[in-house]
Nucleic acid binder design. Structure first.
Length: 991
RNA sequence: GCCGCGGUGGCGGAACUGGUAUACGCGACGGACUCAAAAUCCGUUGUCUGCAAAGGCUUGAGGGUUCGAGUCCCUCCCGCGGCACCA
């Protein structure tokens, strides 16, 4: 332990505080940068290793931005309302207020000990009445806008503890604490209509810079699907079943209905003779977990309930079943089964021998895919001609642009084709030449589709291994006809190639003699006609030269055939067997059938979202009181804004009630009030808000945290918002992140905030795991406390280790051994200070500039681990030399500062400098100085590394190749076929 | 079951757009310093054959594309995260 981290840490933390180094200035001339981390929930366990990971990462970014001349806002606060604190308070007989106060003090001390560059003057706490006044105010805005409403929803109720439970507290249907079986109780709850914003929450994802996986997860959570609700009358009753379908176009194919086992109509509609079987099935279904029910490989089960529905279009009688593959929570809990066009329905119908009616067939629109060769312009001369012909025949012609046609790369080309894989069907033709041919083969093999008609046009001179392809793709029945003579002898063979592939020769083959060409021209033309369209024709030039022949070929493509699907046909297509709707496309039929059911009054268009409205009530004490009063005369009345906040009354002890209400209900003094409107005796709402409420707008409060007139000043919001960079955990992607985006959008619509989206950029960090790779948790006793580490090694060591331990976005196990390595690194830095001299070694200068470049780039890309590794490389390089200059060392300290600010400042000061490192500018890399003078060139023979040589920078290619040849002479046993030179990297001889 | 991410030495992990795999750190081994130990410094460290020179093998498994694959494509296995019979 050579450096005194305890004193150094304390010294610089005190100085930063004194000089307000990290104070964010409103309306500064500098460009602003608002950098946000998820504020912690101050639990009793104290800080865990995950907090410093995320907080240090953005601290590094924040510190770098300040040195780059930005006015940085990096705030912190406490998300302190919620269940764990309340439960802990009950258990220990303390008040939640006290517990929160203690926890916040611990967290604050711990965070401050890390030297994070938060602007502590903006610290906020969601449980502070001055804060939740505005949370309540915002709830009232939702209420006034009609977005908050009451709805009966079930809650988990523990009859033993007499308290409402969160889902998390219910373990396998029992109370987590006492083990009693949890009851469902219906209770009126406040809801917020987030689903009204579903579309915008989805759409606006395109305007923000979130990690792709975060966007995807939000999209899936919102889960938009468009469809219709359709009512089916029940035969012999006045009842009806409403189903939800995303495929109203398949209405005529509905051959039975399926209700979820929990569907209320199952009980009503089941006929007497079916009771036994149906009810035992329902019982069984209830015992299966939803994950199991979701398993698609599971054998379908279900029972007929004895009743029949009337098909609204055909009037036919169709049976009603119940089956657990239909979920009560989704849609209406009932479906119309269309086995011909839905895989699950198909499996079900097959198993129980129910009728299958096809109502959609493969699209008439036929696809022709034109694949060009290696010509420079990416288009072949015959494209326009053939496109016109095929279009006239009703083909949709696609001629994809291949990446760099002069440099064919099969894999890349295949990539381009992938997006057409769903369009290619039995009516498609693929026309290619030259390189287009092998690509067509590989493409079809890749997408694993049966080929019905593939016309290949290939010049025989192309250096293609046709025989090789023939062997490689036996399933395509490839035949090659490269000469006229062969064409004649193989005639019969060709005629037999129904549904198969023929590669043909082209006229531009220089090897075909002129006289053959004459013959070819005359004969082939006739032959093609005879061939019944099992496609043949010459290429590029050929196409243009023999127009009548081509006409004849193209004619043949006008035949189409429809294959009856032997599986459910789920793709789009054309409607059949549907009366007046026949001939419409899937898309048209969806609209027309929806209008038809709407006219008949038996259904309507529905856009369905997986996203559900937000249950905003909690039957708990430790949350923001909902600022509403219930008056027997006026109904629900908002507390006037001037009376906010509605302060949470302090409870001496909790009296569990059996009413399903929050503990607040027992506090009659508080509950009983007068109606703000009419003055009559009234009662306060006793439910509180979820802890998501306070965290849905905290980023706004940071802009103006002490404002008593508004949640924040408009000008300050306009200056700071949106948040430029927000980092947090993946686990918050669907709830907190979505709720706060919604909340902000609502405030935006009301004119209260300046931006529609709150966060410009969102990234996420990986978990810090225990040493064995499992999750750190209190119950396992494997939680590592940052305090010990800070005491033993210093804040800088913890910070640098957190950044160095692994890729930031991925989970990494904690390893105490690695911490020692970081400590050694910082001690080496300290020793470097002894080497300060007048001059620099050239190698040190070079390494410095390479380091500046890499560290600068890596921080932006959140590659903190490799940034630290580069800093280590610099120190190792510098320590080998006699001296390094003061200027070089200061540049290095500037870069070290975001990671290890205490030591960096201490060393800077030891050089006689009095200013804080934080006031310096971020160094700028000089590309010239970073350049190596010599390069190591690898020499390969047939791709195998054989030697390497050192050459001066700027050596000519020919000189390098010559030198390389000598070095590997003994491996060059035969003639060199090809020499590949990659600039500055390698030479590869192919022999 | 589906989606997303991942699988590289004894360990955490590097590797830019397909171009010398194993940077950096830990650990281990050998040496210096020391009465000794710790700390520090120097050296070695993917693996197999070999005294050596040299050569073979190696990025979860198998196949493919390429002069060249950890990286691209296909099939499969394993781990982590998320999740729906979404009609």
């Amino acid at each position: 332990m050579s450096y005194d981290h305890k004193n150094i840490d304390a010294k610089w933390q005190a100085r930063w505080e004194k000089e307000k180094t990290f104070h964010a200035e409103d309306f500064s001339e500098k460009p602003k940068f608002y950098c946000l981390v998820e504020f912690p929930y101050p639990s009793g366990a104290g800080l865990h290793m995950g907090h410093p990971r995320s907080y240090t990462a953005l601290d590094v970014v924040a510190r770098k931005r300040r040195m780059e001349g930005f006015n940085v806002l990096y705030p912190i606060g406490w998300d302190a309302f919620g269940l764990p604190t309340e439960n802990y308070a009950i258990k220990t007989g303390q008040k939640p207020q006290e517990v929160t106060h203690q926890n916040v003090a611990t967290f604050k001390r711990q965070l401050q000990s890390l030297g994070l560059s938060f602007d502590w003057s903006r610290e906020i706490n969601t449980t502070d009445p001055a804060y939740y006044k505005w949370t309540q105010w915002m709830f009232l805005q939702f209420y006034k806008a009609g977005l908050a409403y009451k709805k009966k929803m079930p809650i988990n109720w523990c009859p033993a503890c007499k308290i409402g439970l969160a889902n998390e507290e219910v373990m396998g249907g029992a109370c987590e604490r006492c083990g009693a079986v949890v009851e469902k109780r219906e209770k009126e709850q406040w809801m917020i209509a987030i689903t009204k914003y579903a579309d915008r929450l989805l759409l606006d994802l395109t305007s923000v810079d979130y990690l792709e996986k975060i966007k995807k997860q939000q999209e899936d959570w919102i889960g938009k699907s468009e469809g219709a609700e359709i009512k089916f009358a029940i035969e012999g009753t006045h009842e009806s079943v409403t189903v939800f379908t995303t495929r109203p176009d398949t209405l005529f194919g509905a051959t039975f209905l399926v209700l979820a086992p929990e569907h209320p109509l199952v009980a009503t509609l089941t006929t007497r003779d079916r009771h036994g079987e149906v009810f035992s099935y329902i019982k069984k279904a209830a015992a299966i977990t939803s994950v199991d029910r979701a398993d698609e490989t599971r054998e379908k089960t279900g029972v007929f309930i004895g009743a029949y529905a009337i098909h609204p279009a055909t009037g036919e009688q169709i049976p009603i079943w119940t089956a657990d593959y239909v979920m009560m929570e989704y849609g209406t809990g009932a479906i119309m089964a269309v086995p011909a066009h839905d895989e699950r329905d198909f499996a079900f119908a097959t198993k129980f021998d129910l009728p299958i009616t096809q109502v959609i067939e493969a699209p008439q629109k036929k696809i022709a895919l034109l694949l060009h060769g290696t010509g420079g312009n990416g288009r072949d001369s015959w494209f326009p001609w053939i496109s016109e012909k095929l279009t006239a025949l009703g083909y949709k012609v696609i001629a994809p642009d291949m990446p760099d046609p002069t440099k064919p790369d099969l894999q890349k080309w295949l990539h381009v084709l992938e997006k057409y894989q769903n369009e290619i069907n039995e009516n498609s033709i693929i026309i290619g030449r030259s390189l287009g041919c092998p690509i067509a083969f590989q493409f079809l093999q890749k997408i694993n589709k049966k080929i019905y008609q593939l016309v290949m046009v290939a010049p025989t001179h192309a250096d293609m291994d046709w025989e090789g392809y023939k062997k490689k793709f036996p399933e395509f029945g490839v035949e090659f006809v490269q000469t006229i003579a062969q064409a004649k002898t193989d005639w019969q063979k060709i005629q037999n190639l129904t549904d198969k592939v023929t590669l043909f020769f082209s006229d531009d083959d220089p090897r075909i003699p002129l006289q053959v060409k004459d013959y070819y021209q005359r004969d082939l033309r006739a032959d093609i006609i005879v061939l019944h369209g099992k496609g043949h024709f010459g290429t590029s030039a050929g196409v243009l030269k023999f127009p009548e022949a081509m006409d004849a070929i193209v004619e043949n493509f006008s035949d189409t055939k429809i294959n009856t699907p032997d599986l459910a046909y789920v793709a789009d297509g054309v409607v059949i067997n549907s009366g007046e709707f026949d001939g419409l496309t899937t898309k048209e039929a969806k609209m027309k059938i929806i209008s038809w059911v709407e006219e008949k009054g038996i259904g309507k268009a529905i856009t369905h979202y997986k996203l559900r409205d937000w249950v905003f009530s909690r039957q708990r004490y430790w949350g923001e009181p909902i600022p509403l009063v219930h008056c027997p005369v006026c109904g629900w009345v908002p507390v006037p804004e001037s009376d906010l906040p509605v302060v949470l009354p302090e409870v001496e002890n909790y009296q569990p009630t059996d009413s399903g209400e929050s503990p607040l209900a027992a506090m009659t003094d508080w509950v009983n009030t007068t109606c703000p409107k009419c003055g009559a005796k009234a009662k306060r709402e006793t439910d509180t808000m979820p802890n998501w409420a306070g965290s849905s707008w905290y980023f706004l409060r940071y802009c103006d945290p002490r404002n008593n007139e508004a949640f924040a000043d408009q000008k300050k919001l306009a200056y700071w918002m949106p948040t430029d960079w927000y980092n947090g955990g993946m686990e918050h992607t669907t709830l907190h992140l979505l709720y706060s985006r919604f909340w902000n959008k609502f405030l935006y619509d009301q004119g209260f905030v300046p931006t529609s989206e709150p966060y410009q950029k969102r990234t996420s960090h990986g978990l810090v795991l225990a040493q064995d790779g499992s999750k750190m948790s209190k119950s396992k006793g494997n939680v590592v406390n940052p305090d010990q580490l800070v005491v033993e090694y210093g804040a800088d060591v913890l910070r640098v280790y957190e950044m160095f331990m692994g890729p930031f976005g991925e989970p990494v196990p904690w390893n105490e051994q690695g911490v020692i390595g970081v400590r050694r690194f910082l001690e080496k830095v300290e020793r470097l200070r002894e080497k300060i001299g007048e001059v620099d070694d050239e190698a040190v200068i070079r390494c410095l500039h390479q380091t500046i470049k890499k560290v600068t780039d890596d921080i932006e890309a959140m590659r903190f681990n490799t940034a630290v590794s580069q800093l280590m490389i610099f120190v190792n390089t510098a320590l080998e030399k006699e001296k390094i200059s003061k200027a070089t060392f200061i540049s290095f300290l500037t870069m070290l500062c975001p990671f290890a600010p205490h030591l960096a400042n201490e060393l800077h000061e030891s050089l006689g400098e009095t200013t804080l490192l934080e006031t310096l500018s971020w160094p700028i890399a000089n590309a010239e100085l970073a350049k190596e003078s010599e390069l190591e060139i690898a020499i390969q023979v047939n791709g195998k590394l054989r030697a390497s040589i050192l050459v001066a920078c700027g050596t000519e290619e020919s000189a390098i190749v010559e030198q390389a040849k000598e070095v590997v002479a003994k491996h060059l046993t035969s003639e060199i076929k090809k020499t590949i030179y990659v600039r500055g990297r390698l030479v590869n001889f192919v022999v």
